[in-house]
């Protein structure tokens, strides 16, 4: 009976663990492709960048203070890894009616002001955000190319473990994940959580 109880409890714990990803992609899943409008007006999908061996897919926005704190770090990640085949691709997931600061025009202004070296696309229907199961900004999905037009999710979560001060972070989750992929090794920390802003969903 005790064993049964323990088994049931384990089941519940496992379910509740998967619960956070029940409506989205998990690590190991095939990354869903999309076709979203970039700030330059062009449509972007995972196959747009032929040289990409993977992506640092970041759900981020103009308005979240945490996204702002990580903005330079996102630019730095791109500058460090784009040349090695792992560019940043930033997706703005918020409904612009709920969050006017994240409108396409405001995204364009932000990208220009900060000279984003990566695409900053808008998920107008929020379908891609829903498919991935993104929950907050900023949130990263590290993708690795398995074959043509076939990318796999290798990491989901935070950029590092110090939102306040990049140089004080002791764990650089995304860097570690991408470094592992470049080295052909398994990603050791596959998912993390961080305090962030809710995705602003349309009604």
């Amino acid at each position: 009976m005790q064993a049964l109880k323990a088994l049931a409890l384990t089941g519940i714990l496992l379910l509740s663990n998967f619960g956070s990803k029940e409506n989205g992609l998990g690590v190991g899943d095939k990354a869903a492709d999309f076709n979203l409008k970039n700030v330059d007006g062009k449509m972007i999908s995972l196959s747009s960048n032929k040289a990409a061996k993977g992506y640092i897919l970041v759900f981020t926005c103009n308005t979240c203070p945490y996204a702002n704190m990580y903005e330079q770090r996102i630019i730095d990640l791109h500058n460090k890894y784009a040349g090695q085949g792992y560019p940043v691709l930033a997706i703005q997931p918020n409904d612009t009616g709920k969050s006017p600061g994240d409108s396409f025009e405001n995204m364009q202004a932000r990208a220009k002001e900060k000279a984003y070296p990566f695409p900053y696309v808008i998920d107008e229907t929020q379908q891609t955000t829903t498919t991935y199961g993104a929950t907050n900004t900023p949130q990263v999905y590290v993708l690795n190319k398995v074959s043509d037009n076939n990318f796999r999710v290798e990491y989901i979560g935070a950029i590092d473990n110090n939102s306040r001060n990049a140089s004080a972070a002791s764990k650089h989750y995304v860097q570690e994940a991408v470094d592992s992929l470049i080295a052909g090794a398994d990603v050791s920390t596959k998912s993390t959580k961080a305090i962030g802003c809710t995705i602003k969903w349309s009604n």
Binding site: S16, N17, N136, K193, A194, I195
Partner: peptide, 14 residues
Amino acid sequence: YNSWIDKVDPSWSG
């Protein structure tokens, strides 16, 4: 954050 968010609730994204 990653060290304690799950301790509040495993379903919390943060």
